[in-house]
Simulated assay, not measured.
Amino acid sequence: WFPVIIIGLYCLIFEILLKRIKIDPSFRVILSICLGSIFVSLFIHSSIYNDDLGWRAILLFVLTGTTIVTFYVNEYCSSFKKAIFIFIALIGIIEPLNFSKMLIFGADYYRPRPSLKELNKITHQTHKQDRLLVNIHQNETFEPWGGNLLPPVMVNRKFCFQNISYVKTFGPNWGDKVELMDHAIRQFYNGKANDKDLALIKQFQCNAIIVTRYDPVWSYMPYTDLTSVYSDKNLRIYNFNR
């Protein structure tokens, strides 16, 4: 959709400047937001989370640009031009569909762990009120981003912890314990967690611990505080002893 918005925006600006078409004041506001979003991403750099401002600012361009191009195509384009825009838009759909398929079924550099079949097992072996813990570090060599939303969506369960950036955004009340929890999860799945790590995991109310055959702790479970409630060749689920 980027090419569609860019081409449509250029065409509309051409119409405004050369043909002197009149636009509604409210439409000018949308157009200003759209252009401002582009200029922010182009010329303003932030040092937060890999230039987070530059990446996020362009989203306003996408939202307002879609509205502007829809208006332009509807009001000023002939049937032939509309067909061209639709053709470009259809080409643009291919890549998002391919990306979605990759996230669900896996690609050369990304393999969802656990698999979809294992995620389905987790759904049937846990309760809706459970707060699940999974190894958030197991895909670090595969994923470009730190968090993976696929498991919570597919399992339809609450996860007690995703990654640091998600928790800081949606659970700021945890404060400094966010970094400690992230470290505790890494230690736990490597079979090296101490009593403080386990206590912190309990404090985050993780009452269903998911372990897969990909986790280092799979071959050796040193934690006596955990009770196995489900086990097969690829998946184990543990609860803390009461």
Results as ranks from 00 to 15, higher is better:
I84D: 10
W145L: 09
A208T: 07
R213F: 04
S46T: 08
V211N: 06
Q138K: 08
N239W: 04
S165H: 09
I237R: 01
W145G: 10
I164A: 15
A208M: 01
L149M: 02
I94L: 09
S100D: 03
K192Q: 00
S78K: 09
D197G: 00
I94R: 11
G171C: 12
V62T: 09
V153T: 07
T212E: 10
M221F: 04
I5F: 01
N173R: 15
T123S: 15
S41W: 11
D215Q: 03
Q205Y: 11
L60G: 15
N234P: 00
I84A: 15
N135D: 12
N194E: 04
K22V: 06
R242T: 07
W1C: 02
Y76T: 03
I201V: 09
P114F: 03
K233E: 04
V4P: 10
E179D: 14
G146A: 10
R20N: 15
D197P: 01
F159A: 08
L119S: 11
G8C: 08
W174P: 10
L133S: 06
R213S: 14
K128T: 05
I104E: 13
E95Q: 09
Y220G: 04
A107E: 05
F170M: 13
G171N: 14
D197Y: 02
F71K: 10
W174A: 15
N234Y: 05
L59K: 11
I16G: 14
N239Q: 12
A199M: 06
L31D: 13
R157I: 03
F105K: 07
V217P: 00
N135Y: 03
A89F: 14
F188N: 07
S32E: 05
V211P: 02
T64A: 12
Y189M: 02
I185R: 09
L35F: 13
N156F: 06
D24E: 13
I237G: 04
P172F: 08
P151H: 03
I5H: 03
P151E: 03
N194I: 00
I86K: 12
H127D: 12
K202F: 00
R131M: 07
F204D: 08
R20H: 15
H183K: 10
F105M: 05
L119E: 14
S165E: 15
E118Q: 14
C160A: 14
R131Q: 11
V62R: 01
L132C: 08
H137T: 05
S26K: 11
A193N: 04
S165V: 03
Q125M: 15
K158T: 06
